[in-house]
Structure formats: structure tokens, C-alpha cells
Amino acid sequence: MSAVLPSIASAESESLSTLVVKPASKGKSADPHRLPVVLVTGANGLIGRALCREFVARGYEVRAAIRDQDDLEMQGSVVRVAAPDLADPRARWPLDGVDVVVHTAARVHVMNPGPDEIERMMAVNRDGTVRLARACADSKVKRLVFLSTIKVNGERTTPGQAFKAIDSIASPADPYALSKFEAEQGLFEVASQTGLQATVVRPPLVYGPDAKGNLELLERAIRRGVPLPIGALDRNRRSLISLANLVDLVILCASHPNAPGQVFLASDDHDLSTLDLARQIAKACGLVLRSVPVPIGLLKLAAQALGKGQMIRRLSDNLQVDIESTRERLHWTPPQSVEKGMAAAFAPRP
């Protein structure tokens, strides 16, 4: 992945000086030229693994915080550390000598969660994040980068009216989005009280090798050669982000002087219709997409009858993300094109 994600030398050489580098352990003097020590939570997840690999490739000292120590295969000088249960009020985090925490661990989104699941989601995503922020402040960690979700802004956009970091009002529509939004609020409150540098990144749907969810289902259908009834879904626009582009942005947020106190929206900066997305996946798989132009109204009616109404709404709705503010504040441009991102995610299998 390091070949895909070129180091942003000009931005990082300027920004790393803003972090106070502490000695890694007692008895050692601080090296002003040493890159920050980074702890990544959720390091056994899709995004966490990629972050650990790329941080190491760029010369950082990396600590991978995971619950199951046997569930991580990582190359390079990654140090495994035990992560506590985020829902445990007595949780103790291994933060000694850590300069930056990148928090990706979360209770993931599920469809139609019951009361117990909602309670657990809030305990992990909201309360656990706030406790981690306080622990960071107490341990003199300089910065915390929190991976949130574009769902905080809402589920859909009006055609041509993308979500923006500055003037879009938060509108979380489900418990998962609400847990992330309240976590953001708690994080910034801790930051204001303690001086902890807090940064939030809100990505849309992330695609990459081994990504799960609806994209995996779509890929399977395309590989089986199933004719898909999405030929008429060619006018909506949805923002996505490749794993490589998200990792590049998060690593920049870990050190850039303009990152603290900000919420950054993320995307590839190249929106696709649902039909375009399916074509890109098919092309990356080395296949030709088979699609049928079923009228959208009929498609929604059939999906509703099958209990798949919510899925079809997501496929047919718009969800666009404006990253102009992210570009300007961080001097960042997504380094990977959609075509290369799709090729990396859906390359033909041996």
C-alpha cells in the first residue's frame, strides 16, 4: 500500500513540528526528529489494519490496540497492545509514551437494532470514545483523530446539494449515526477542557480489499453474472472513498497543524451513479456488467414487497460529499483515482 499512498512530504514535514514528541520510556531523552508514536484502536479492522501498515511504511512507531491478540497478522514493526472493552467504565488504555491516538474501533452499524443493541452502541461508540479522550488528556497524549461517519450529516442529499463541513446541519437518522455524533460532541468538549487536540473525519462508504456489506454483495452478484435490475439507476450520485485515500487523509490529520478542532468530510472527490459503480466493479473484476433497466418506481415497489425497501432507497438516492474545505485546510488531494481504487478492491481473483 505504501506504493499507492505516496508520503505527502511537504505537508508532513511542516506539520510534524507541531507535535510535542515525548520520550518513549523513562530514561530516554526526546528526539526532536522522531516521528510521533501512534496508537491505532480497532487495528484488526479493515481501516485499522491499513492504517497500521501505512504508518509503519512512513516511519512511525505504531502500537496496534486490539481485543483479541491472535486476530492480527501485521508486517513491520507494529507493537501489539491489549485494548480494553470500550463499554467498560473502568477501562484502562495503554497510552504511556503515545503521542497520537487514531480511534477507529466502534460498534458497527446494524439494520433495525433492538434496545439492547442500541444501548451497547451508545456505550461503545459514544461513552467509550469520551472516556478514551479523557484518558488521552490525562496521559498527555497530544492528539486524537476520531473516525466518525458521513451518516452524522444524514442519509441522503438533495440532487446537486452535497454535504459540506461548514454549513451542513448534523442530522443523524439512526442510532449508529447518533452514537457517532454524540461521541464527536463529547470529544470536542474534552478537548476544550483539557487542551487535547481533537480531529474528526467523516467518511462515506469505504471500499477496498476485503470490504464487507452491500459492496461485497454487489461484487458477488456481478461475479456470478446475475443480470442486475439497476440499469435505470444512472442519474443518482453517491460519494465513496477508497481505503487508500481514507488512510492517506487520516495519517495527514494525525500531524497537520490545521487539523485540531476540525471536522473533515472525506471522499474520492468523484461521485458515481449506482450503475456507474456497478460498471466500475465489473471492470475491475475483468467482467462485463449485465444489467436490466427496470423503472425505479417498479424497482422500489418490488423491493418494498420483499422487505428490501431501505436497501433500494440507498441505491437510488443521492449522497454527495463536498470536500473543498478538507482540500483547503489540509492542502490535500485524494492520491488514488477511482479506477485504481476499484482495481485494488475488486481485482480478478486467482
Rank of each mutant, 00 (worst) to 15 (best):
I47V: 14
L228G: 08
D70W: 10
S2R: 14
I241D: 04
L240R: 01
K340R: 14
A177S: 08
G213I: 07
Q304F: 15
P334I: 05
P23R: 07
V145E: 06
R90W: 13
A343F: 10
Q193H: 08
F264N: 00
S337F: 06
V250S: 08
A221G: 05
A221Q: 07
V294R: 02
R224M: 09
L35V: 07
L19W: 06
Q280Y: 07
K140I: 05
I222F: 01
D96H: 14
R223N: 05
K142I: 08
A347V: 13
L240Y: 06
R349E: 15
V288M: 14
A211C: 14
E216K: 13
N318P: 05
M1N: 09
A64Q: 03
G195N: 10
P6F: 08
F346N: 00
S179W: 03
F146P: 00
K340A: 13
E328F: 12
R220A: 13
C253G: 01
L315N: 05
D88Y: 07
E182F: 11
A83D: 09
N236F: 01
E219F: 09
G297P: 03
A30Q: 11
S239E: 08
I241L: 14
G213A: 10
I323K: 05
G225R: 08
Q310T: 14
I312L: 09
R58S: 07
S291D: 09
V190C: 05
P334R: 00
G231A: 13
Y207A: 02
T333F: 12
V190Y: 02
R313P: 01
A57M: 04
S17Q: 12
V250T: 08
K142S: 12
N125P: 07
E73D: 13
S29H: 10
V100H: 00
F181V: 08
M311Y: 13
M311V: 12
T326V: 09
L306F: 15
L319G: 02
R92L: 14
P172M: 06
K212E: 15
N44K: 04
K142L: 10
P115L: 11
P203T: 02
E54F: 01
R220D: 12
Q320S: 10
A173S: 09
R237Q: 12
L132Y: 00
V4A: 11
A302I: 12
S13A: 15
D269A: 07
T326R: 00
Q336V: 15
R237Y: 13
A198F: 00
P334Q: 02
L319N: 01
S273G: 10
D167M: 09
Q197I: 06
A50E: 04
L5V: 15
L218V: 04
R58D: 02
K308T: 08
T333K: 13
K151A: 09
L315I: 13
R329S: 14
L178S: 10
R327S: 05
I241A: 10
V100G: 00
I118P: 07
L86T: 01
D88N: 12
G309L: 11
Q304N: 15
P23F: 11
K164P: 04
G160C: 05
E61G: 11
R49Q: 13
G225Q: 09
L249A: 12
G186T: 05
A133P: 02
E155N: 11
L240A: 02
L289Y: 03
G195S: 06
E182G: 03
V110T: 13
R131C: 04
A24F: 05
R224Y: 07
